[in-house]
Write a protein that binds this DNA or RNA. Sequence first.
DNA 1: TTAAAAAGATGACATTTGTCATCTTAGAAA
DNA 2: TTTCTAAGATGACAAATGTCATCTTTTTAA
Lengths: 205, 205
Amino acid sequence: MVIDDDRLVVTSLKTILEADAEIQVVGTGTSGRQAIELYHKTKPDVLLMDIRMEGMTGIKAAEKILAADPEAKILFLTTFSDDDYIVSALRLGAKGYLLKQNYESIIPSLKAVQMGLRVFGDQIITKMPLALGTDKTSTVEYDLNEKELAIITQVANGLSNKEIAQALYLSEGTVRNYISVILEKLQLRDRTQLAIFYYKNLKHA
Amino acid sequence: MVIDDDRLVVTSLKTILEADAEIQVVGTGTSGRQAIELYHKTKPDVLLMDIRMEGMTGIKAAEKILAADPEAKILFLTTFSDDDYIVSALRLGAKGYLLKQNYESIIPSLKAVQMGLRVFGDQIITKMPLALGTDKTSTVEYDLNEKELAIITQVANGLSNKEIAQALYLSEGTVRNYISVILEKLQLRDRTQLAIFYYKNLKHA
DNA sequence: TTAAAAAGATGACATTTGTCATCTTAGAAA
DNA sequence: TTTCTAAGATGACAAATGTCATCTTTTTAA
C-alpha cells in the first residue's frame, strides 16, 4: 500500500512497484486519514508512507495504525535523511525509512521489510535470535546491505557461486568475497548454514 | 499416542518413547474404542496402534478416526510383515506399518511419520512435489532409509561431513558416500540444496 | 555351512568453497 | 583537480565436498 500526498509520487511508485511480479499494490492514498482507513480494509503486507503530509502526518497515522495492529509493517518515505521525525517514527515501531531519491533501492527494501527486516537508508538490519548452532539464545543485530541480501537469497535458492555471479553480473571471486563477509557477520561457517539461517530466520519472518 | 491390547507392550513402548526428549506420549490405551475416544481428546501428532486387537481391530479404529480427521497420522504396529490387513490399512490412509520386533527403528520411523513421510517396515517413503530447481511440478516418490534420513537431518542442521561422521559413528568417507547417494536419489547437486530440500519438503511436512 | 547381500571403509580424484592479500576503477568529497 | 573511499576483480591457497571404483566386514538367506 502506498501513501503520499503528492499524487505524482503515488502514481510513479505504483508503476515502479507493479512492474515487479512479486508485488501487488493493494491500495493508494494521499493523506494520513486515508492511510488508516485503507490499512484496516486491505491489511497490506507493507505500508509505504510519506513522512511529511498536509493534515495528519505520516507519523501520526503510523501511531494510530500501530496502536491497533502492532504487527503492521510500515516503511517511511522521506526526502531528507536527517529528518527529525525519523527517530520518533522508529521508536513507534516503524520498520525503517527510505530516501525518495533512491528509486532503485525501493523494491529490495520493501521485500526486506516484508521478510521482517528493518531498513535505514540503504542499510538493511535484522534483529533476531540466532536459531542455528548450539544454544545461543541471545538476540543479536546484524547489518546486511542490499547486495548481501541479494546474495543470501541466491544461496538460499541453491545456486553455486558461478551461477550467482552470472545472475547478479559479478565475477565469481566477488561473490565469494561477499559470502565470506556475510558468513563472518552472521557467525556462520559455510553456505549450507547460511541457507539454513535463511529458512529459519529470514523467510516469512 | 500408543494403543496396543497387550498392556506390557504399551508400557514398554511408552518407556522407550519417553526416553527421547523430543517425544511425548499424550495417551495410551488397549482397545480400538479407546483409541477413537482418546484420539479426539488429545489430537496426537502420531498414533501408534496395534493392527490386531480383540474387539475392534486397529483397522476399524483407524477407519473411524480417518473419517473424522483425514489428516490423522496413524502408524500400525504388526508382528508379521505379511499381514493381510496391512494393504487395506494403507489404502485407508494410514502412514505405514512397523514390525514390533524392530525396536530400534520405532523412534526414527515415528519421527519420519511426523514429518509427513510414510514408513514400510524399515523403508521410509516420501511422495511430494519437488519444490527445488526450475519448474518440475511433477510428483515424484523417493525412497529413503533410516540412515539416509538421519544423515539428511544432520546436513539440515548445518553439520560438516566430519561432524556427521562423529555423530553417527561412521567414517567421513561413508558419510560422503551416503550423501552422494541421497543427492542422486533426490536429484540435487550439493548439500546446500539438500538442506533447502529438507526445509521446503520434509520439515513440518 | 556356504553363498549372497548389505553396510561400511578406503583412497584417489576433480571441483567447489571460503579466506586473504592485493589490485583496479569509478564515484564522492575536499 | 586531486584525494579518498567503496565496489569489484584477481590470484593463490587450504580445506571441504562429491564421485567412483574397490575392498572388508557383517548380516541375511539358501
